[in-house]
């Protein structure tokens, strides 16, 4: 702006009210991060069941819905806690506004969680049936529920995979509807959300599947490495070329180029993407499972940092 570059027109705000800074903070970061894990384990788990079902089937059938259910509940809990009127959450179901991605997402996420809950019960039942004699009485009750069958599980798995895609991606549409924040564009964020789910889903199975064969781990490592690479490329594209889009984006990106979030941004990129990519490469050379374990942990931790920076920086810009 000429007002910035020419001394004679130096323009400075001398009286104004305090303006809001961060509106959506760490709870929303946690929301997105937990949702990535909750949906990612389903997407990657479905692949594992289809490709390596004979080897990992029993384990994945139990762990997939269990982990997904835990992280979906973290996601839903912090979504609720972030509301200033959490007791009115039911309004979303009573007075839905279908143009809002928040509404559509809340409905889909609720449906998805219900499907995952039933799958979790079926998974736990099959675990209990196999060890019926050693289980306490209330677990044996679960074993008696014969309608919780494998065929139902397989049908629900298809539904879960179909639902996992919009559930993991709808936040990108919320970010797009947040028209005040020029940095977030729905098409880019849709891909980032999907990649985050694949990244965390594969990372989770690399952590819990230490006893699995190297062939399974190699598939997971490739998924982790490719999703980390693509995600990193998009972030770098935004970092280096985003400023061309608009003056607002240029102003926002100064926060990560020379501003207060520069260190955190690069920490996130290294921990979530660059180091895991290197570890995947080294493990493919050496067939090391422990390197992949480390890559999985780093990807999950780093993704939180990366998402947090991307959530906060557009909010630092004054809107009026």
């Amino acid at each position: 702006m000429v007002e910035h570059t020419v001394a004679a027109t130096n323009a400075i705000v001398t009286l104004d009210v305090p303006i809001p800074q961060v509106i959506w903070g760490w709870m929303i970061t946690l929301n997105m991060w937990a949702k990535s894990i909750g949906t990612g384990v389903v997407l990657v788990g479905a692949y594992l069941l289809a490709r390596h079902g004979r080897e990992v089937g029993e384990s994945v059938k139990v762990s997939m819905p269990l982990i997904s259910f835990i992280f979906l509940n973290i996601f839903l809990l912090f979504t609720l806690l972030d509301l200033h009127q959490p007791l009115r959450m039911w309004h979303i179901f009573a007075y839905p506004n279908w143009t809002s991605a928040i509404t559509v997402g809340a409905w889909l996420a609720t449906l998805f969680t219900a499907v995952i809950f039933i799958m979790m019960l079926i998974g736990l039942r099959s675990f209990v049936v196999a060890r019926k004699e050693k289980m306490p009485r209330f677990c044996r009750k679960l074993a008696e529920m014969e309608f919780l069958s494998d065929s139902l599980y397989n049908k629900l798995l298809k539904v879960a995979v179909v639902l996992a895609l919009p559930v993991t991606m709808y936040t990108a549409t919320i970010m797009g509807e947040a028209t005040a924040r020029e940095l977030w564009q729905t098409p880019t964020e849709l891909v980032q959300m999907l990649l985050a789910a694949i990244l965390t889903g594969s990372a989770v199975y690399l952590i819990i599947g230490q006893k699995w064969s190297y062939e399974v781990k190699r598939d997971l490592a490739i998924m982790l490495g490719v999703s980390a690479f693509l995600s990193f490329v998009i972030y770098m594209g935004e970092y280096y070329f985003g400023a061309m889009k608009a003056e607002e984006v240029a102003a926002i990106l100064t926060a990560v180029k020379e501003g207060p979030y520069s260190a955190m941004f690069w920490a996130g990129q290294w921990i979530a993407f660059i180091i895991p990519m290197a570890l995947v490469y080294l493990s493919l050379k050496s067939r090391s499972g422990s390197l992949l374990f480390l890559a999985g942990v780093l990807a999950i931790v780093g993704l939180y940092i990366t998402k947090h920076v991307w959530l906060i920086i557009p909010q630092l810009l004054p809107l009026s």
């Binding site: 809001p20 509301l83 009115r88 959450m89 947040a178 005040a180 809107l319 009026s320």
Partner: peptide, 13 residues
């Protein structure tokens, strides 16, 4: 419900 979505969306603060 106090989700602050409107605050994130309003380009005029």
């Amino acid at each position: 419900i106090g989700c602050a979505g409107c605050m994130m969306a309003c380009p005029y603060g």
